[in-house]
């Protein structure tokens, strides 16, 4: 078990981060190159201002008409993403690891706060999972992967939480925690979770397409938010 843990936190972590970052970079670079060749429309009407405004409004809580129509989901969606990103990034234990491995670290959250963040992520996942099952229009379009990914997101938080509180077999929890965490990182570039960066491209595009291109005499284009 210890050997496995050693591997996962050593070479395993390197591999996971390399695939995660490399995968996203390659994917984005490939799509960018392809767009230069095949999606001339983007560059013929290029307008960063409208694109950025659209991105901005979708990043702030309930910043879009769409999310305001489903405020509960909109808020959960926001809180989920914030905690999902912030908790692992600013966790003291992670920072210590990064400091050891790369000699860089981020400011750390107080441990109690990180603990709450973890709970919030888990609660949000449960909500999103339930929503997927309960709302007919969401269930109709959900495939096995949509549920698996949610569980995969849940797993590192759940195991991390259990390990931190020393519930169950600590060593096993730690192994599972690192394993599922790395699995999630590896899956991101190859799944719909690639929206981590692709979001900025698609949102920017529709922002300029519906906005800048429809702007007449300096008047409003369509706000896609």
């Amino acid at each position: 078990m210890y050997a496995l843990y050693e591997f996962l936190t050593g070479p395993g972590a390197w591999i996971a981060f390399a695939v995660f970052i490399g995968g996203l970079v390659v994917r984005a670079a490939f799509l960018y190159g392809l767009s230069r060749e095949r999606d001339k429309l983007i560059y013929q009407h290029f307008n960063p201002s409208w694109g950025l405004r659209s991105i901005f409004h979708w990043l702030i809580p309930l910043g879009s008409v769409s999310l305001r129509q489903q405020p509960l989901f909109g808020l959960v969606f926001f809180v989920f993403h914030v905690c999902l990103l912030a908790t692992p990034l600013f966790l003291l234990a992670h920072n210590t690891l990064w400091d050891q491995a790369f000699e860089v670290s981020l400011p750390s959250l107080p441990e109690a706060l990180a603990d709450y963040g973890t709970l919030v992520v888990m609660a949000c996942v449960v909500f999103l999972f339930a929503r997927r099952l309960v709302r007919p229009e969401v269930r109709a379009i959900s495939g096995p992967w949509d549920y698996i990914l949610l569980l995969l997101v849940l797993a590192p938080f759940l195991t991390g939480y259990l390990a931190y509180h020393q519930w169950g077999d600590y060593a096993l929890m730690m192994v599972l925690h690192v394993l599922t965490g790395e699995l999630m990182l590896v899956v991101i570039p190859f799944s719909k979770l690639g929206h981590l960066i692709l979001f900025f491209f698609t949102r920017g595009f529709i922002g300029q397409e519906m906005g800048a291109r429809r702007e007449i005499d300096g008047r409003l284009g369509a706000r896609t938010w």
Binding site: Y32, S35, R38, G194, H195, L198, F199, T202, F205
Partner: peptide, 12 residues
């Protein structure tokens, strides 16, 4: 690129 991204990004 747009079509590829759209096809793969839908979060359902």
């Amino acid at each position: 690129a747009r079509m590829r991204t759209w096809l793969s990004i839908c979060a359902r």
